[in-house]
Computed example of a mutant assay.
Amino acid sequence: MPYRVGQTALWVVVEEAEPVVGESRRRFDASASAGVPAHVTVLVPFLAPDRLDDDVLGELAELFGAHAPFAVRFAECRRFPDVLYLAPEPDAPFRELTEAVMARWPEVPPYGDRFAKVVPHLTVAHRQSGGVYDGVAAALAGRLPLRARVAAVELWASGGSRWRRRARFPLHGR
C-alpha cells in the first residue's frame, strides 16, 4: 500500500500489543508491512515535513509533556465497516491528546476531516472480508484483555513505502 511521501502522523505506539496482534496485523493490515507499529492515532495526517522545524517540535514536546502518562486496557474487538480494531479503555485520554493538537493546529483536522467523530482505536485488520474479521476477533478473544502504559506520543513520517519514527514526546504531566 503506497503512502504519500512526507505524510506525517502522531501516534501512541502500543508496544505491548505486538505479541498479541502482530501476526494478525502482518496478515490483514497492509500498514504493518510498511513499518507502521501497533498504535492508537492521535492525529493523521499532521503537518507537512517542511513545517516540522525545531519550533514545532518544541511545541509538540511542551504540549504532550503537559499530559500525564496513563494506563489503558484493550478488552474487546470492535468494527468499523472496513476495520477490525481493539477499543481502548479509557479512551478519553486519547481524545484529550487529539483535542490538544487540534486546538494548536486547527488546519490539520483528524483524518483530513473525513469522519464526523474521532474514535480512538488500535487497528488489527483493514480492508478484509467480514469472515476474516470474525476469525481474527475469535482468535484474539482468549488473549484479551491487553494492558499497556501510555507514556509518549511519537511523530512518524512516510517515505512512500515505509514509515519511520521522527521524534518521541514523553508525557510528564500529573
Score class of each variant (00 low, 15 high):
F169K: 05
W156I: 02
L155V: 04
L144C: 02
E154T: 11
A152G: 09
V136N: 02
A151G: 15
G160T: 09
R168V: 14
P170T: 09
R164V: 10
R166K: 13
V150K: 02
R149E: 15
S158Q: 09
R168I: 10
R162D: 10
P170C: 08
R143P: 00
G135Y: 03
L144Y: 03
G142H: 07
A157K: 14
A138N: 00
A152S: 15
V150Y: 03
W156D: 01
V136Q: 01
S161K: 13
W156L: 02
W156T: 00
V153I: 08
R164C: 00
R164L: 06
L155A: 08
W156C: 02
G135D: 15
P170M: 09
E154H: 14
D134K: 12
F169W: 03
G135I: 03
A151K: 09
A152H: 13
E154K: 09
R143C: 05
G160K: 11
A138T: 12
L146M: 02
R162P: 00
A138I: 04
R164W: 07
S158A: 12
R168W: 01
V150T: 03
G159M: 12
R168C: 14
A157S: 13
G142Y: 07
A138S: 14
L155F: 07
L140G: 11
P145A: 08
R164A: 14
A151H: 13
G135S: 15
G142S: 06
S161Q: 14
L140W: 01
V153K: 08
L140M: 06
A151Q: 12
A137H: 05
A157P: 00
G159V: 05
L146C: 03
R166V: 14
L140H: 10
D134N: 04
G142Q: 04
R162W: 10
A152T: 06
P170A: 11
E154L: 11
V150N: 02
R168E: 15
A139T: 04
R147Y: 09
A148N: 07
G159F: 13
E154F: 10
A167N: 06
L146H: 03
V136G: 03
A141C: 01
P145Y: 08
L140K: 06
V153F: 11
R143A: 13
V136A: 02
R143L: 14
R149W: 04
A139V: 00
R149M: 04
R147N: 11
